[in-house]
Amino acid sequence: GATAVSEWTEYKTADGKTYYYNNRTLESTFEKPQELK
Rank of each mutant, 00 (worst) to 15 (best):
T25P: 00
E10M: 05
G16C: 08
A14E: 11
E27F: 03
K12F: 08
T3K: 12
N23C: 15
K12A: 06
Y19W: 09
L26E: 11
E27P: 00
Y11V: 10
E10W: 04
P33F: 02
P33M: 02
G16V: 00
Y19F: 10
E7Y: 07
Y19Q: 05
E31I: 13
Y21S: 03
T13D: 12
E27G: 03
N22T: 00
K32H: 06
V5P: 11
G16P: 00
K17F: 07
E7N: 07
Y11G: 07
Y21T: 06
E10P: 04
Y20V: 00
R24H: 10
G1I: 14
G1R: 14
E31H: 07
K32R: 11
K17Q: 10
K17E: 11
S6I: 09
V5A: 13
T13K: 03
E10Q: 06
G1L: 13
G1V: 13
A14M: 08
A14Q: 09
Y19K: 06
Y20L: 00
A4G: 13
Q34F: 10
S28W: 13
Y20Q: 00
E7I: 06
N22E: 01
D15L: 04
K12N: 04
Q34N: 14
K17G: 04
E10H: 02
K37F: 15
Y21L: 07
D15S: 07
K17V: 12
D15N: 06
Y11S: 05
T25S: 05
E35R: 04
T25V: 01
Y19I: 12
L36P: 07
W8R: 01
T9W: 07
R24G: 05
N22M: 00
E31F: 07
R24I: 15
T13W: 03
A2Y: 08
L26C: 15
K37W: 14
R24F: 13
Y21V: 13
Y21D: 03
A2T: 14
Y11E: 08
S28Q: 11
T3I: 12
S28Y: 15
W8I: 01
T3G: 15
T29I: 07
K37L: 15
N23V: 11
Y21F: 14
E27D: 04
T25L: 03
N23S: 15
T18G: 03
A4T: 13
T9A: 10
V5E: 12
K32V: 11
E10D: 03
S6N: 11
Y19V: 10
A4E: 13
T25E: 01
G1Y: 09
A2G: 14
E35K: 05
